[in-house]
Design a protein around this nucleic acid. Structure first.
Lengths: 248, 248
DNA sequence: GGCCGTCCTTGACGTAGATCAAGATGCTGC
DNA sequence: GCAGCATCTTGATCTACGTCAAGGACGGCC
């Protein structure tokens, strides 16, 4: 059984001055995250309110409905976000990877649950203190608005997918999203990494595990993708995927 | 045939000083819109870059893919936002009403089309100039981040609806959304106004016109709603709707 | 290196909602 | 008041995907 309780041993003290070395200096995702817009002195201020959190795979970062106390940057590992209906039906609303920001929608409570899909390391900011800092770091606020805008655009694409695309179109779209993300992160493109289960993919695409599986094999038989190993997809004919994804 | 070309006779000159009376003073939606966070002198600066646009019902404000030149506040009338697949399948991603902000997702091109559902009046801001102003009006930027956050939360609810809810649950959720909006706008609650066609509702909920219609009649026969007239829905048993919407 | 649990795949069948096809209703303009 | 067109409703049928049910394959652990 996966641990359901958040455990965050702090690897860093609250007071910035108590730290010998800045954890930001060798932060692998500094340039890929919202932090990239800050200058050294601004970064120090942000660092002043940050703590590092660790979580095992399967652990829950927070639950839908919990008071929203922290926003975070994903440093290492990946996260799935989801909403549940009372009877257990689940909709995955997104997957996060290193450099992604968790919690742009600053509300009093979390609107979704967040669960680690692998060993996870995040950089956490108390919401109220970050909100205060935003007044003094307009560049950060500007960047967050940009991030929020991107998230809205992605959400609208997802609505089109969920409301109007067929299973085959959904899976094709999903593979292309993954590929695009891998590209942005300068990860290997072929085969592309697929760190989530068929069930997670299904809950993201509004399909069942079985339909996802069937659609993968169908695409494989059509020579469009290869399935070399668990958690890997080889994109053989990207053009074909693009066509399918757009319903052409 | 509805006009497909945007026509924006300016009712106001570019130069703010040229205006005798401030159009903001008697703006009906000032307190309900993003402008509410601004003080008088700040409002004057924002007004300096704004123009008023008019559009007939059915007119297109902009098309998906057009260069994003303006953001707007809806002053009067209502708007539907939608995305199309090449073969004509349509997903309505949202409906806007007076006081709503059009275009938080500040990108180079519009990610969706916007069409007037009734005679429309909007207050438009050139994107680049607004972006420039944001540096000087941090309160406005803060407010936009808030608006964007709300939009993300709503989008995630919609993903749950589109990915996992049944037709009956979708329609019930939709009616409750409408009711909530009417409440916020202090409009009449019973019967609630339904300014969009069955086809628009279907494209918003990922259903066909026929299924929407059938579901409405089913809810009526169950005594949960009444359909007193075209474009009106009487919510008879709100609790029942809430239960259905949550899948209980 | 073999055992066990989880995840994935495949098959047979069922069903919610789509599609196709008429009507009914209601608004618009004369 | 009525012709004409939109929109909405209702019915009959079809189908993509879900559900239920077995296997099969991987990978983690001793």
């Amino acid at each position: 059984m996966a641990p359901n309780i958040v455990e965050f041993p702090l690897s860093q003290k609250r007071s910035a001055s108590a730290m010998v070395e800045s954890p930001c200096d060798d932060c692998a995702i500094r340039e890929a995250s919202v932090c990239s817009v800050l200058k050294q002195d601004e970064l120090i201020r942000l660092r002043g309110i940050s703590t590092i959190g660790h979580l095992e795979s399967g652990g829950t970062v927070f639950h839908e409905g919990d008071p929203a106390e922290h926003l975070s940057n994903v440093i290492e590992g990946s996260v799935k976000l989801y909403k549940l209906l009372p009877d257990g039906r689940r909709q995955v609303t997104g997957f996060l990877f290193p450099g992604d920001f968790l919690g742009v929608a600053l509300n009093e409570t979390y609107a979704y649950s967040a669960e680690a899909m692998s060993k996870l390391r995040i950089c956490r900011f108390p919401r109220r203190r970050l909100e205060g800092l935003l007044n003094e770091l307009p560049k950060l606020e500007h960047r967050l608005l940009e991030v929020a805008g991107n998230e809205i655009v992605a959400a609208q694409d997802q609505m089109l997918l969920l409301g109007r695309k067929t299973a085959r179109e959904r899976v094709a779209s999903f593979l292309l999203i993954l590929r695009r993300h891998a590209e942005q992160r300068r990860q290997q493109l072929n085969p592309v990494d697929l760190p989530m289960s068929r069930a997670d993919i299904g809950d993201y695409l509004g399909l069942t595990t079985e339909t996802v599986s069937r659609t993968f094999t169908q695409l494989r038989k059509d020579g469009i993708i290869g399935l070399p190993a668990q958690g890997k997809v080889d994109i053989r004919r990207r053009d074909a995927l693009e066509n399918i994804a757009e319903g052409a």
